[in-house]
Design a binder for these strands. Structure first.
Lengths: 246, 246
DNA sequence: CGTGGCTTTGAGGGAGGTCAAGCGCCGTGG
DNA sequence: CCACGGCGCTTGACCTCCCTCAAAGCCACG
């Protein structure tokens, strides 16, 4: 899709649902998202530019090099952010969950591709309006900076994993961290939903699908996890955390 | 060194050289560093808080979990930023060169350790004064944000390398990128200085020292590079870039 | 109930790790 | 001035963890 109109805002007419009736005040993820930087009496600035967009599962949200004409937060669902190589190799940079934020890229183009794993709802801020709002509110820029600094720490932690950890350590790390992130949203400790495929997990951790599958089976055999239809139960968190530890 | 006084500002009295006579106007790396955000007529704000610190080669600059009481830019030399595991594994996050910036960490503690590879000179901004200066200048915060966003892109590019590339591809990528960075400073295309050890390179790329050495030898045998006493000459950049490509 | 996509499992192979020895360079001391 | 020692780098032989290739199992959905 080299189509210059394939970027997010331009494609939302293709999306399953679109609405302007965003209500920031009632938003479930406002407090954990970038939007927490807005005071209650300033929410109008946010709300007036916000657009809600929904995607079905397995839809392209944007591709690398697409024009980036909006920033957005994820309000529901899961998506993957990834880069593909010419020969088909793929690195999944991260899985985005409710509360996660995608900023306008520095040069106005997306560095990575993104597509929905499950049904996804995004809260979308058109680039120009967003920039104007930020410019008038240094504390929002401050929040944006802190969010990006946190992302940087996450990326570097991921670097440790990719560079130094074994297959079992990688998967333990992945499960522990995804479990923590999910428990912030739905508070089910020890039950980890895995909406993404084995291939996604493999490409996230620099492994193959077979190694992921074998390692999961090994964990299950040792009673560390139980494999369920849509995820895993963490039966022995201690052991997993020990494997994942630095 | 669990000593709470081991953090940078507190240790600078141990350093080989320290001086307040910073001259921002003549600073070679000002234009490529965070300091470019300061207008010429606002340089006093920067200069009045800046402290120059020098380190000999192979000195500890800070350790992970040390209090972070200053931000700094590198003005001369090379250092490594890294995290070590309990069992001795080490991931070198990045090599810092003139113009690179280390910010105050979010929680006031360093996430990583840093030490000098060569003799190093830093330009140091005490945390509190730096925060105050930034607070009054949204355009500096903007620059800080952009710098961090650029770091995030670099970290993610490194993730691709660690997760997807082979040993030869990793080393090609490393040489090409280090060559580009160095040519911004000293403008010697095709001559790459390698002040860091093979072990540092190995820990940067998720390889072993032997694999780094063998791969370099292989490149030399194929006429792609020539190994020199303190670095390598890039004889066939095309080939290297092809290997490093996505 | 059949089909196709995703996952699991097995068998074999290879890229890179491990272990060990040797080399080259440089600083030190006789 | 040269012998020695140490450290970092290179090279070789072997091994292992994970990848590759292949086949079978398991759902979900029409």
């Amino acid at each position: 899709m080299k189509d210059p109109f394939s970027s997010m805002l331009n494609t939302w007419q293709h999306c399953s649902h679109r609405s302007n009736g965003t209500n920031c005040e009632r938003c479930k993820i406002r407090q954990i998202s970038i939007c927490a930087a807005f005071e209650p009496d300033d929410l109008d600035a946010l709300q007036s530019m916000a657009q809600t967009i929904s995607f079905a599962a397995k839809e392209t949200i944007f591709l690398e090099n697409d024009d980036s004409d909006a920033a957005f937060t994820v309000t529901e669902g899961a998506l993957r952010l990834y880069r593909t190589f010419a020969d088909g190799r793929r690195q999944v940079i991260s899985f985005l969950l409710p509360g996660d934020f995608i900023s306008v890229e520095a040069d106005g183009r997306h560095e990575y591709s993104a597509d929905s794993i499950t049904e996804v709802t995004l809260c979308c801020f058109p680039k120009k309006q967003f920039a104007a709002v930020v410019k008038q509110r240094p504390h929002v820029l401050q929040r944006l900076y802190e969010t990006t600094a946190r992302e940087l720490i996450n990326a570097r932690e991921h670097m440790l994993t990719l560079g130094q950890r074994s297959a079992a350590e990688k998967l333990a790390w992945f499960l522990v961290h995804l479990g923590i992130r999910q428990s912030c949203i739905d508070f089910e400790p020890n039950i980890v939903e895995l909406p993404m495929s084995r291939q996604d997990i493999a490409d996230h951790l620099g492994l193959t699908i077979e190694t992921v599958s074998r390692t999961f089976s090994g964990f299950a055999r040792e009673g560390i996890i139980a494999i369920t239809p849509h995820g895993v139960d963490l039966l022995n968190c201690k052991k997993l955390e020990k494997l994942a530890a630095t």
